[in-house]
């Protein structure tokens, strides 16, 4: 019935045709899925995209068996501390990064295959009260952690064998960092959002905090997803999990904001609102690849947006298996992965 509600409301209808179902994987041993992701995996001389699924106590690696079927290659059992999330490492092969903890992230581990011992294993990268974490190109991992006195930000350069080759401390802002995002095409630049609703910029090579820029109070608790530098401006894609509905624009799920890093001034470029009606209501969690945003809504639907045009381009209503719980873009934007809590993941080409 959600699809029926949406049909007359979305511009041009729900446009499910922009999502094409490709395949499905089902993990009968998974009672409560917490995350799904993809990883590039090189084996026997070829590189392929594999799916990674996580429950509270397991992380499983899936390989494509045919055009529409998947087989489980390996399951890592992590029984001491619950898995909270999978941390994608863009352009990295044969490494799966996971964050574990009770209420907050307490440690970051790498899961990998060792050809030397012909076995799957894991290694510990970091422990602490970790508030935010992001994987960057070239096997780099940035995290913020908090002690009673101070906030520590660190970039770890990972080795192929799951160790840490180098560490670089980043200068912390006064406010707690809530999220990080890489700047496309600028290897040494990193942006973050803070609890005080600012966007901050670092130089990853030197660790310098270059600029703190106010987002404005209209949209509190903004989370950065991606950033692009173009024509001297820094375009940051933000989501607003707690944004309230306003008469002028409905409920904004994502916004593209242009910052002038020289002056710290900003202006909104585009906002993408939740689909109107009962299908939307609130944004629960989402993911951005390039200029495509995807989010799970409180209605149990997954919505997809063209963030540069501010248009909702597709909606996946809750299916027979119930509400959607997870929405992630595959590496390189190859597919949208939509997951149910029962461990079922469906892949769609967008």
């Amino acid at each position: 019935d959600v699809a029926e509600q949406l049909t007359p409301l979305l511009p041009g209808g729900p446009r499910e045709e922009s999502l094409h179902f490709v395949s499905e994987l089902k993990d009968p041993s998974c009672s409560c899925a917490v995350d799904v992701s993809t990883v590039w995996w090189a084996a026997a001389g070829r590189r392929e995209l594999r799916v990674v699924t996580a429950s509270e106590s397991t992380v499983s690696l899936w390989e494509p068996l045919g055009p529409d079927s998947w087989g489980k290659v390996h399951t890592w059992h992590l029984t001491e501390i619950p898995v909270i999330q999978i941390v994608p490492l863009p352009d990295t092969c044969n490494l799966v990064c996971v964050a574990l903890g009770e209420l907050e992230i307490g440690e970051i581990r790498l899961l990998l295959y060792s050809s030397e011992t012909d076995s799957f294993k894991y290694s510990l990268v970091k422990t602490g009260n970790i508030k935010a974490i992001v994987g960057l190109k070239d096997r780099r991992l940035v995290s913020s952690s908090r002690t009673m006195q101070e906030q520590q930000l660190e970039m770890v350069l990972l080795s192929e064998t799951g160790g840490s080759k180098d560490r670089q401390t980043l200068m912390p802002p006064e406010e707690t960092v809530t999220a990080f995002a890489e700047v496309e095409g600028m290897r040494e630049a990193l942006v973050g959002t803070t609890a005080g609703n600012s966007v901050v910029v670092w130089n990853l090579k030197t660790g310098q905090l270059l600029r703190k820029m106010d987002i404005g109070y209209s949209y509190p608790a903004s989370i950065c997803h991606r950033a692009y530098s173009d024509s001297g401006l820094l375009f940051v894609i933000l989501s607003h999990p707690h944004a309230k509905e306003s008469e002028s624009c409905g409920s904004p799920a994502f916004r593209v904001v242009a910052f002038n890093p020289r002056t710290g001034r900003s202006t909104g470029v585009m906002f993408s609102c939740l689909p109107p009606g009962r299908a939307g209501r609130r944004y629960l969690e989402g993911d951005v690849w390039d200029t495509a945003g995807a989010a799970v809504l409180t209605s149990g639907a997954v919505a997809v947006w063209d963030l540069l045009r501010g248009r909702c381009t597709a909606v996946l209503p809750p299916g027979p298996a119930g509400h959607w719980a997870l929405a992630r873009w595959a590496a390189g934007g190859a597919a949208l992965l939509a997951g149910h809590r029962n461990g079922t993941v469906r892949l769609y080409r967008y």
Binding site: R211, N260, R262, T263
Partner: peptide
Amino acid sequence: CSESDLGPISLNWFEELSAEAPP
């Protein structure tokens, strides 16, 4: 957006801010 809203724009903002920021 116009340049006047955002102030003077520099294509080399990253290098300039890195040179100006405390080490």
